[in-house]
Simulated scan of single mutants.
Amino acid sequence: MLHVSEPSLIDLFAGCGGMTVGFRREGFQPLMAVEHDPAAAATYAANFGEEHTHPVDIATIENDAIPSADVIIGGPPCQGFSNLGSKNVDDPRNQLWKQYLRFVQVARPQVFVIENVDRFSRSSEFQLLMEEADHGMIKDYELTPGVLLAADYGVAQRRPRTIVIGSRIGKISLPTPTHAKVPAAGLKPWETVRSRIAGLDERPASTELPDMWTDFFGRRFRGQFKGRDIHFGRQPTPLSLERYDHVPPGGGRFNLPDRLLSRCWREKKTGTTDVMGRMRWDAPSLTIRTEFFKPEKGQYLHPQWDPHDPNRRVNRVITHYEASLLQDFPKDFVWCGSKTEIAKQIGNAVPSGLAAAVARHVRNHLN
């Protein structure tokens, strides 16, 4: 196949730009990005340019404003499918993928890529998507769906995601893994938490964002924050600190003595094994979600813990900066928004290493 120099890109439901980071790394040129959340759109604009960023409801963009592009990427909101969501098939957020298909109809890309939670591939909405490829809005495209594990593509995180590649230039397979838990011929070992966050300050000096402000889209946002600006700590209670101190790497709430268990943990003897969990230095993290700053939500305690020396234990959750690095954002990425808004941007993003693997694979097939 001939290689396209700087193939053009539209990113829908772009968030702060995790997918664009990966595609940009592989030489794609963004023409348009649409993101309804203002703070996420501001972060995108800060990193990739305000002029092509549209901080609006995707349904408000008229067809004649949609440019032609080589590739469209995006992850329509997936809360209705998420294991943490309502699993409500009537959730209006689950209809937004039809807006994505409208852009495909108008822009006529050679290839489109849909990213979503792993549950999406088993949903009724996914079946409707396949039907649209059979005889509907995208009948000119051949679809290749599958669930990819980010760790298999060089990301230091065990994050499964549904990827659907649609192509009207011949069927395109999913990219083959480059890494493995137990590497075989030609595969590298999984990346680890250590490879991303080792050497950062174990006890951040501040618990607050710097007092910085920036302007995008005619309004003010907090930021633009550089990496170390979001490496701030929290102020846990004495009870929380005592709980953290009992949890070894890979452990969780089941390592706590009864006197430190909350009532709901005491009564729930099974499940939610990653709650109050501590990461391992030499393994990928589990999925970084939007509330990674709350250890009761998952395995988010810092991995440093010495079984013999309490002074060599880091009893805190990972910082926003550490979470961003585990999500494969570049160290020089900049952020806009409040603490909570930035955490949401980080947790909702596609790890850029996974996006780059898809981008590299797609680019090899473009005409």
Rank of each mutant, 00 (worst) to 15 (best):
A107C: 06
D309F: 06
T287E: 07
T43I: 08
G166I: 00
P238D: 14
G347Y: 06
P307C: 12
K331Q: 09
H135Y: 10
P204T: 11
R24K: 14
R219A: 03
T287I: 00
G298M: 10
R102C: 01
L148A: 04
Q105R: 09
A323I: 01
D152T: 03
L149Q: 10
V34L: 10
R219W: 00
V362W: 03
D90W: 05
N116K: 08
G80H: 05
N88P: 03
Y300E: 06
L84C: 05
I230F: 09
M276N: 11
A185N: 12
K188L: 13
P284D: 05
R259I: 03
A133C: 05
R263P: 00
I288V: 14
Q105K: 11
R196C: 03
F333Q: 04
P236D: 14
K331F: 06
P310Q: 15
S352N: 07
K98H: 13
F221A: 01
K171I: 12
D57R: 14
D118M: 06
R243S: 11
V21M: 10
D57N: 13
G49S: 14
E62M: 05
G271N: 13
K188E: 12
I197P: 01
P175K: 08
A107M: 04
R25W: 09
Q327S: 10
H320M: 13
L96Y: 10
D134G: 12
H246L: 13
H36E: 09
E50M: 14
V164K: 09
G353F: 02
V350Y: 02
A355R: 02
V317T: 15
C336I: 05
E341T: 08
S285A: 13
R25V: 01
V71L: 11
R220I: 02
P160K: 06
I288Y: 02
N315Q: 12
Y300A: 02
K226W: 08
M130Q: 15
V362M: 08
E132D: 09
A65V: 02
G353Q: 03
E125H: 15
S124I: 09
D282Q: 03
V56G: 01
H365D: 08
M212I: 08
E242K: 14
P295H: 07
A355H: 02
P77W: 08
F120E: 07
G337T: 04
H3S: 12
A69L: 03
T162G: 10
P145A: 13
E35T: 00
R194W: 11
N255M: 07
N315H: 12
K171Q: 15
P183G: 08
P77L: 02
H135R: 15
P249T: 15
E6D: 12
R316M: 09
K139H: 11
K188P: 00
E296Q: 08
L256H: 09
F225R: 04
Y244G: 04
D57A: 14
A180W: 01
D306Q: 11
L148R: 00
N63I: 02
P307D: 13
V334M: 03
F232P: 01
P38F: 11
A42C: 10
E341N: 14
Q224K: 06
S262M: 05
I197A: 07
R161H: 05
S124R: 11
N83C: 07
K226D: 09
F293C: 05
I165W: 04
G136T: 07
E242A: 12
D229W: 05
R102P: 02
N348D: 12
V314M: 07
D215I: 06
A107G: 10
R196W: 00
L260F: 12
V350F: 03
D118H: 11
L354E: 03
D309T: 08
V147G: 10
M212P: 00
